[in-house]
Design a protein around this nucleic acid. Structure first.
Length: 290
DNA sequence: ACCCAGGCCCTTG
DNA sequence: CAAGGGCATGGG
């Protein structure tokens, strides 16, 4: 259901971009760093109530990007007929704004993985290293801060089910804590620079870097290319890239950069929104599991 | 048992 | 450069 700001809450929370949301007793509860967010839909009124603990007034303006000029975005990306069709098919699908640290470690856990299991791993991680908060008589765990992650042992991380990603999480946490990679600084630098810096983190490649940039660094031009996007490009948009894409073999970082550049040249500064519509569509067509 | 999952790292040629 | 194997783990 679309609310008065034109946002479809359920669709947006369930589109594979923000993992730590769950519906309990008719309300959505989300983890935003150290804050628990709550969304309750009022029956048949297209109105939602927003709450949180600790208190965080008007958080929805931030998380749901109500500062974006959505009309302009829709107008821009609808220049392409195929995308226009998808925009009309999924009205109210929005990019959400996540906390950088949470976003970085969420997508670090996403490689060669499926969404239900990414959720499981992140919940395990929060339970082990986050703080317990009781809200509405239910237990929630905040997302671990960088210091807790630094102090984790590989064994701890393995016990959360992170597998071979444990090493990535630990190494990246240390580099971030030591400000070898300065997140707060990078957030305010431009796309290309921030991306090159993020690529220095262990376990962060082209795709994960683009997810971090799009979902938590306000870089709406970032266009994460995963196996599903590749599949869509092969089916629908072969003409936009001269780069040969072979569905059977993985694309190299060089190929990724070429395709990514071509996409951004074509769709412009809101390519990230294009990606979100494509991703949702291709996953839906292939019987998503999340 | 086998295959797959919002990839990335590492080694070869 | 590219190509390809390995990787931890849980679900189908």
């Amino acid at each position: 259901m679309i609310n008065k700001y034109g946002i479809d809450i359920d669709l947006s929370l369930n589109s594979g971009q923000y993992f730590l949301w769950e519906k309990k007793k008719k309300s959505w509860y989300g983890i935003y760093g150290e804050t628990i967010l709550k969304i309750t839909e009022k029956e048949n009124e297209r109105i939602y109530e927003f709450d949180s603990f600790p208190e965080y007034n008007n958080w929805q303006k931030n998380i749901f990007r109500q500062d974006d000029n959505y009309e302009e975005i829709i107008y821009e990306i609808s220049q392409n007929e195929r995308i226009k069709y998808l925009v009309q098919k999924y009205p109210g699908l929005r990019i959400l704004r996540q906390k950088p640290i949470q976003c970085i470690f969420s997508f670090l856990c996403s490689s060669n993985n499926n969404i239900p299991r990414i959720r499981l791993m992140l919940r395990n991680l929060s339970k082990k290293f986050g703080k317990k908060i009781v809200f509405d008589d239910m237990e929630f765990y905040t997302f671990p801060d960088i210091k807790s992650l630094c102090n984790a042992s590989i064994q701890d991380l393995l016990s959360c089910g992170l597998g071979y990603r444990s090493r990535f999480v630990l190494n990246s946490a240390k580099d971030i804590a030591d400000k070898i990679i300065n997140i707060e600084f990078l957030k305010n630098t431009k796309y290309e620079f921030a991306k090159e810096e993020l690529l220095k983190l262990d376990g962060v490649g082209e795709k994960i870097a683009d997810c971090i940039l799009l979902f938590s660094f306000d870089k709406l031009e970032a266009f994460p290319i995963d196996v599903w996007i590749i599949k869509f490009l092969c089916q629908n948009l072969q003409q936009i890239t001269k780069t040969e894409i072979n569905l059977n073999s993985k694309i190299s970082p060089i190929q990724y950069k070429k395709i990514s550049k071509e996409i951004r040249d074509r769709y412009g500064k809101y390519s990230g929104y294009v990606q979100q519509y494509i991703y949702y569509n291709i996953r839906e067509e292939n019987g998503r599991k999340w």
